[in-house]
Structures are given as structure tokens and as C-alpha cells.
């Protein structure tokens, strides 16, 4: 019965991010937060494996204390327990720090057979934390997986990877780490009962002091500028006259001929 850890990140919803067109600074004061899109697939896969084979699912995240609402959100999706590795210092971490902190929080502290991460986070999309965490823990990994099977009694998983040059099916001895693509499953939408139930599930709080290590960044961000795009933003209706206007304009612009 697999003991599974699902990793997830609490991120700003990029759809809420606005930019000041003059300074190209991001305007972040009205942004909402969410569980990173593909981490929902990671949690879902862990929960589906548990429903099929038994075992356990722990959700783990590294965040600042302010990310507390992520726990209820994650737990309502099925894990029985969460590990909240949080500290005010855990802000704007680079992927190497996140991987190192996760490794320190997991290694020797949580028993596991399988760790599942999303392909990449919706904010940084560096696609590093999964494989880097595997390396830190000294376990094998398979990335970009779109089909996952746990082989009972053999202590291994069969994973289909979707790569630029085709599909590759690999057999991986456990313990191992898998990063998943969004086409692997459809994350469930938690019911009201599940949302209410989530509040009662246990949470392990782990602080920087508990980890007895320091985590220095390797990358330093020297600037963030909004990617701006000059567009005319003209709007038309479905009336034949309007459609004709659009076609005329496109011909004038020389993009239809």
C-alpha cells in the first residue's frame, strides 16, 4: 500500500495580475491565490491511487505563514493530512531553496514510497523542484508523466512520459518521485462536505527552526517587468456589416490577400 506525498504550491492567480503600462511594474494588490494548477493534478493522482490501492496521502507545501488558507483547499481535495512547512523567511524562494527545504522536511521525517509533484508551478514554471527534490533525496524520478500505474506487490510504478520526441514508458523502483502533466486526470471539485471536513484534518506545522538548517538562494532576481503588448482592442459584433468592416481592415493591413 503506497504511502504518497503530494507537493503543492500556493501561488498568485496570474489572471488577476495587472500592470502599470508606463512603469511596467506589476500591480499585485488585488490578486487572489490558488493551488498551482498542475499541483491539483498531483494531489488528484495521489488520492486516486490511494482510493485504488489503499495507503496514505500527505499534502506538503513550503510557504509563508500567510499561505494558511492553502491547507483547507488542499485537504478538501482528499489528502488525510498536511505538512505546512512555513516561515516568514520563505518568501520569493528560488527553486533550489524550495527543493532543499522540502527535502529537509521530508527526509527521515515523513515515511513515503512515492512523491508526486506537478510539471511546473503556474507562477515560476521553472519545472525544477520535482527533479531537484528527487536528487536531494537520492531517489529516482520520472518527469512529464501522463499515465501512472502502481504495481501492487512489486514495489514499483509504471509511468508513461510524454516527451518532445514521443512517448516513453518507464518502470521505476520505489521510493521514487514523479512529476505529472495536466492530461493525467481531471482534478475533482471539492464538495461542501469535503470543504467542511478539511478543517478537521490534522496539520503538521514545521518551521525553519525545526529544520535546523539554512537555505541560501542561488539565483538573485534583479528585475521584474510586465510584458506589455500594444494592441488596438477594437470590438465588433456578429452583424454582417461589422464582419465586413473587420475583413476590410485586415485587407488594408495586408494580412489577407
Amino acid at each position: 500500500m503506497p504511502r504518497i506525498i503530494a507537493c503543492f504550491k500556493w501561488v498568485m492567480d496570474e489572471a488577476d495580475i495587472k500592470a502599470d503600462p508606463k512603469s511596467r511594474q506589476l500591480v499585485l494588490d488585488r490578486v487572489g491565490y490558488k493551488i498551482s494548477d498542475y499541483d491539483r493534478n498531483a494531489i488528484e493522482e495521489a488520492v486516486q491511487l490511494q482510493e485504488k490501492h489503499g495507503g496514505s496521502v500527505v499534502g506538503i507545501t513550503v510557504a509563508t505563514p500567510g499561505a494558511k488558507p492553502c491547507l483547507k483547499d488542499a485537504l478538501s481535495r482528499g489528502p488525510e493530512k498536511a505538512c505546512f512547512v512555513n516561515d516568514p523567511a520563505f518568501e520569493n524562494l528560488d527553486p533550489s531553496q524550495t527543493a532543499a527545504i522540502l527535502a529537509a522536511a521530508i527526509d527521515g521525517k515523513i515515511e513515503y514510497d512515492l512523491i508526486i509533484c506537478g510539471e511546473g508551478s503556474s507562477d515560476l514554471y521553472a519545472q525544477q523542484v520535482g527533479p531537484a527534490l528527487a536528487e536531494k533525496l537520492g531517489i529516482p524520478c520520472a518527469t512529464y508523466v501522463n499515465k501512472l500505474t502502481y504495481v501492487e506487490g512489486e514495489n514499483k510504478v509504471i509511468a508513461q512520459r510524454k516527451l518532445d520526441d514521443g512517448l516513453e514508458t518507464v518502470s521505476v523502483k520505489l521510493p521514487a518521485l514523479i512529476t505529472v502533466l495536466p492530461d493525467l486526470n481531471t482534478p475533482r471539485i471539492p464538495s461542501l462536505k469535503q470543504v467542511l471536513g478539511a478543517a478537521k484534518k490534522p496539520v503538521d506545522n514545521v518551521s525553519l527552526a525545526n529544520l535546523q538548517q539554512t537555505f541560501e538562494p542561488c539565483l538573485k532576481t534583479t528585475g521584474i517587468l510586465a510584458a506589455t503588448m500594444e494592441r488596438r482592442r477594437l470590438k465588433f459584433t456578429a452583424d454582417p456589416e461589422d464582419i465586413r468592416k473587420v475583413v476590410d481592415s485586415l485587407i488594408k493591413e495586408g494580412v489577407i490577400a
Binding site: 528560488d94 527553486p95 533550489s96 527543493a99 515560476l124 514554471y125 521553472a126 519545472q127 525544477q128 520535482g130 527533479p131 531537484a132 527534490l133 528527487a134 536528487e135 536531494k136 524520478c141 518527469t143 512529464y144 512520459r161 510524454k162 516527451l163 518532445d164 538562494p217 542561488c218 539565483l219
Partner: peptide, 23 residues
């Protein structure tokens, strides 16, 4: 930055304790 390249880079960077600018 093929998919395999991304995995190789992430694991190598972790093993070398260094920083990696993805994409």
C-alpha cells in the same frame, strides 16, 4: 530546454548546489 534537458539540468543543478535559470 527539451523536456529531458530540463530534467537533466534540474538534477545536475541540485547535485552541484547551484542555481539554474529555466526557460
Amino acid at each position: 530546454a527539451s523536456q529531458r534537458g530540463r530534467e537533466i539540468a534540474a538534477r545536475a543543478a541540485a547535485a552541484l548546489n547551484t542555481g539554474l535559470c529555466s526557460g
